[in-house]
């Protein structure tokens, strides 16, 4: 449990930092140039880390399913939808909705155990917990906001 929470918090901090870096790139160039660069860097870093930890074992044959080859496209879907959403709603509102949707889907996912994930039984307490977090997101994002902050300027997750 502690390990899981530690990694979740680490991921969140890294995403926050990456969003700032990515928006610095995006200030100078277009969305797709930025996305291609970000994913290219992600690939290079993953490859290097994989080689460091596993050496040639990184390329050992593994039981591949067809869809593994296409799941990288989800990231392209994220960028497309987010850019379109921000264009129509502005960054603050779009990112708020995105975060709320992210969390709601997570709860549904755990409840149904889709894609072979371990089922986490639904409880009302969980739903209330999620709703309290959602209200926190809304207060944080929309409470007296005058200017969009860095995080909302360009939100891009290449994970």
């Amino acid at each position: 449990m502690a390990i899981g929470l530690f990694f979740a918090v680490a991921a969140g901090a890294l995403v926050g930092m990456q969003n700032v870096f990515n928006s610095r790139v995006n200030e100078r160039t277009g969305s797709w140039a930025t996305t291609a660069l970000v994913l290219g860097m992600g690939f290079a870093a993953s490859l290097v880390m994989g080689l460091v930890f596993e050496g040639a074992g990184l390329f050992a044959p593994k039981p591949m399913e067809m869809w593994f080859w296409f799941s990288g496209l989800i990231g392209v879907g994220v960028v497309t939808c987010l850019v379109q959403g921000m264009k129509r709603l502005g960054p603050t509102f779009a990112v708020s909705i995105m975060m709320i949707s992210q969390l709601s889907f997570a709860l549904v996912w755990d409840t149904f155990g889709w894609m072979g994930l371990e089922k986490v039984p639904f409880t009302w307490q969980q739903l209330i917990g999620v709703l309290v977090i959602v209200s926190g997101i809304i207060v944080f994002k929309l409470g007296g906001a005058k200017e969009p902050n860095t995080e909302t300027k360009t939100k891009r997750q290449a994970g």
């Binding site: 680490a10 991921a11 995403v15 990515n22 610095r24 994913l39 860097m41 992600g42 870093a45 290449a158």
Partner: peptide, 8 residues
């Protein structure tokens, strides 16, 4: 910055 994705 994109390289952070590996750790994310």
């Amino acid at each position: 910055g994109g390289g952070l994705a590996a750790f994310v």
